[in-house]
Amino acid sequence: MTIASHLVELRRKHDTLSEMVEQAQRSPGSDALKIAELKKQKLRLKEEISRLSQH
């Protein structure tokens, strides 16, 4: 897998997590821990995307 294709996949996963966070935040009774975990995953992906983009 090339870096470019890996970046595309990471961005796709990041976008999916963004949608999941938005949906969870809009839902009454959402689990705050689940939302926090999704946000952490999203941040890790963003950091990985940033790191790979600099090469």
Rank of each mutant, 00 (worst) to 15 (best):
H55R: 04
A4L: 13
Q41N: 09
L33E: 09
S53L: 10
E22S: 09
L45D: 00
L7S: 07
I3F: 07
L38R: 04
A32R: 01
E48C: 02
A4I: 14
S5P: 00
K34W: 04
M1K: 02
M1A: 07
H14W: 13
I49R: 03
A24M: 08
I35V: 15
P28R: 02
I35Q: 01
I49K: 01
E37D: 08
R51Q: 12
E37S: 08
R44Y: 11
I35T: 09
A36P: 08
A24Q: 11
H55D: 08
K46G: 15
Q25K: 15
E19H: 02
A4G: 05
L38A: 04
E47K: 13
S18H: 12
D31Q: 06
A36G: 05
E37A: 14
P28Q: 09
E48F: 03
D15L: 13
K42F: 11
L17W: 04
E22P: 02
L17F: 07
A4W: 06
K34D: 04
E37H: 09
A36Q: 15
E22N: 03
K13P: 01
E19N: 08
S53C: 09
L33F: 11
E37N: 14
P28C: 00
S53K: 02
E19R: 01
A36K: 15
R44C: 08
S5C: 02
M1D: 09
L45P: 03
V21R: 03
V21D: 04
K42S: 15
E22G: 01
D15A: 11
G29T: 05
L17Q: 07
E19F: 02
A4C: 02
L10P: 05
S50P: 01
T16G: 00
L33T: 13
R12I: 00
S5L: 07
K40V: 09
Q25M: 14
T2Y: 00
K40Q: 11
E48D: 09
E19M: 11
H6F: 01
S53F: 03
Q25L: 14
I35Y: 01
L7D: 03
L45F: 12
S30G: 00
E19Y: 02
L45Y: 10
